[in-house]
Simulated scan of single mutants.
Amino acid sequence: MLQTIIVAAGEGESQNPLLPAAYDIIWSLVCFVVILFFFWRLVLPRMKKLLDERSAAIEGNIEKADAAQKEAEAALEEYTAQLADARAEAAKIREQARTDAQRIGSEIQAQAQADAERVKSNAQVAIEADRQAALVSLRSEVGTLAIDLASGVIGESLSDDKKATALVDRFLADLEASGSAGADTSGKK
């Protein structure tokens, strides 16, 4: 076996073992050119088309995203403006409601005051009427009692109505005069 290696080494001295034979290089070059031609004509254009489509899709999506972001910002600004308008309108409505409530409260208070004054004046009129009725009733009863008492003291009947009425009126006038004089002196203390 060693001998075959030595013989093969002796024969191969003319040819470099690192370089292939010329026919291998030519056929490899032909195959490479054919494969390169098909790659250049078929595969490369498809790859370029695919990459261009992908690039266009990415750019389109970026543009769509930018447009959507601009629309969102515009919608946000519009929403913010509408919200500010709504808040201003709500504040205006609240202020108007407060003003209306104060006005209505003032009107109700004025009406209640007027009603109270009317009730007070009606009560005063009714009290005055009751006082007058009580005074008339009291005069007649006091007059009757006074005449009966005077008849009992004198011992004779005082049946003359005019005379009895005059006597009762004079007696009551004296009582009123003495009552008002007593009120003046008690009020000064």
Score class of each variant (00 low, 15 high):
L2Y: 05
L2T: 05
L2K: 04
Q3I: 12
V7K: 02
V7W: 00
A9I: 09
G10F: 05
E11R: 05
G12T: 08
G12F: 05
Q15C: 01
Q15E: 04
L18Q: 07
L18I: 05
L18N: 07
P20T: 09
A21G: 04
A22T: 09
I25T: 04
I25F: 04
I25W: 03
I26N: 01
I26H: 01
I26D: 01
W27T: 15
S28N: 13
S28Q: 12
V30E: 01
V30K: 01
F32T: 03
F32Q: 02
F32G: 03
V33N: 03
V33W: 03
V33C: 07
V34H: 01
I35E: 03
W40M: 14
L42Q: 08
L42A: 09
L44C: 09
P45L: 10
R46C: 14
M47V: 15
K48W: 10
K48G: 06
L50F: 15
L51C: 08
D52C: 05
E53W: 13
S55A: 14
A57C: 04
A57G: 09
I58R: 11
I58L: 13
G60C: 04
I62W: 08
I62N: 13
E63G: 02
A65P: 01
A65I: 07
A67Y: 06
Q69M: 12
A72D: 07
A72T: 09
A72K: 15
A74K: 13
A74I: 10
A75H: 10
L76H: 12
L76S: 13
E77H: 08
E78P: 02
E78K: 15
T80L: 15
A81Y: 10
Q82V: 00
Q82P: 02
Q82E: 09
Q82A: 09
D85T: 07
A88M: 09
E89I: 02
A90L: 10
K92A: 12
I93K: 12
R94E: 14
A97I: 04
R98A: 09
T99P: 00
D100Y: 05
I104L: 13
G105Q: 09
S106G: 05
E107D: 08
I108H: 07
I108C: 03
Q109R: 13
A110C: 03
A110R: 04
A110H: 02
Q111F: 03
Q111I: 01
A114F: 03
A116V: 02
A116D: 06
E117K: 13
K120D: 15
S121C: 10
N122E: 15
V125G: 06
D130P: 00
D130L: 10
Q132H: 06
L135M: 10
L135T: 08
V136E: 11
S137I: 06
R139N: 06
R139L: 06
V142Y: 03
G143Y: 02
L145N: 09
A146R: 00
A146T: 05
I147M: 08
D148H: 07
L149N: 08
G152R: 11
V153H: 00
G155D: 06
G155T: 04
S157N: 09
S157E: 10
L158D: 00
D161N: 10
A164W: 00
T165N: 12
L167K: 01
V168S: 04
V168G: 03
V168E: 02
D169P: 08
R170W: 02
L172E: 07
A173W: 04
D174V: 09
L175Q: 05
E176N: 12
E176Q: 13
A181P: 00
G187P: 00
K189I: 10
